[in-house]
Amino acid sequence: MIIPRIDIAPLFGSPTAARDAADRAVMDAASTSGFMTITGFRGADMLAPENRRRLLAIFSLPEEEKHRLWRWNFDHSRPNVYRGWYPLQKGTLSQKEGIDMGPDLAHGPARIRTDDPLSEETPLPPEEAVPGWRDLAAAYYRAMEETGAAVMRSLARGLGLKETVFDAAFKSGVSTLRLARYPFLPEVEAERPEEHFVVHAGKRRALVGGAHVDSGFVTLLAQDGVEGLQAQAHSGEWIDVPPVEGTLAVNFGKLLERWTGGQVRATLHRVVSPGRERFSIPFFYEPAAEAEIAPLPIEGAAPFEPFLYGDHVWEVSTNFVELRGVKHLRQPRRRVAS
């Protein structure tokens, strides 16, 4: 399996031969490997080394400042349930700390709702603690929204659908920007059970992210030259996703695979330890909580009962260790029959 690198700059322009070629490349990657790396995306300058360091400066906050950002399941005095900080939890396969941020980061209080934790306020550090950080994080969030929208429109064209077919669902979406740190802890890795190790390219490597497919639509992962991300080929072989600095690694989620009748492929991927500290900046491009996911006019696609995206993402995401224990805090908002 070859993971292609695609310049998606033409996707942001009017119809041209170059955009048609980019559409074909995106659809080919989506329908075969289910992975690609991209250049020419919005906000690429924000991944320059200096800007990346500024974005990750949040991890240098004192522990007491991080604690003020914790989610409810780690500190029951906190009001935030879905957004906020999750501390390092030793003893788990995925040993990391980080923060999940919602659309209010980029679009302000108008995107906050008190009746749905998926749209709750994101706790953020004060400006004086990390000067300029909020503005940079907000700008990066908006850039990834633009990039996700361009990729979805390209997929729509590749599927033979109206290019705006997905637009309504993603209006006022609940996309998540995550900043994560995987510390390198040799003493912890030495204590891992054997099933937390794999052999890759003749070397024994610790798993720090178990094999999984993402549950949603499009994941845009900032690359910084640090290896570790791997995708599974059809043969079962694990392939290194090229960690080229300044690119985005893009993969597609299980729900998009279902929505497109399997024409877009959700691919198993995992993370192996690079033997040093690793940072991760994924952006999960997601629809609105109340967006209805209903069958598309795609020949051969299996029918399914329409459902609301918010119900789906809550059911799935609250199974992860970072959100364990909160499932009961949101009830399904099932589609009301017309």
Score class of each variant (00 low, 15 high):
F320R: 14
A302D: 12
V272E: 13
P274W: 14
N319I: 02
E305Q: 11
L255W: 00
I298V: 09
F304P: 08
L308T: 04
L256F: 08
P303M: 03
V321R: 05
A294V: 02
F279R: 13
N251R: 11
E290W: 12
E322R: 13
E292A: 11
R258E: 04
G261F: 00
W259P: 00
E322T: 13
F279P: 06
L255S: 08
V326P: 11
F304K: 09
A288L: 07
E322Q: 15
E322W: 13
E305A: 13
V250G: 04
F320D: 14
P303Y: 06
V272P: 11
P282Y: 03
G262I: 04
L323Q: 12
P274N: 13
T318M: 14
N251M: 05
R324N: 14
L296A: 02
R270Q: 14
Y309H: 10
P297N: 02
P303N: 07
E322L: 08
E305R: 14
V250D: 02
I298E: 02
V326D: 10
I298W: 00
Y309E: 07
T260Y: 02
T267V: 15
H269N: 12
G262T: 05
I293T: 04
E277N: 15
P282H: 10
G261D: 10
N251P: 09
P297H: 08
A289C: 04
F284D: 08
V264M: 07
R270M: 12
E257Y: 01
G275D: 12
E315G: 05
R258F: 05
I293R: 00
T260E: 08
Y309L: 06
A249I: 10
L296N: 03
G275T: 13
G300L: 08
T260C: 09
V250H: 06
G310T: 01
G253C: 03
F304E: 11
V264G: 07
F284A: 12
R265G: 00
L308E: 08
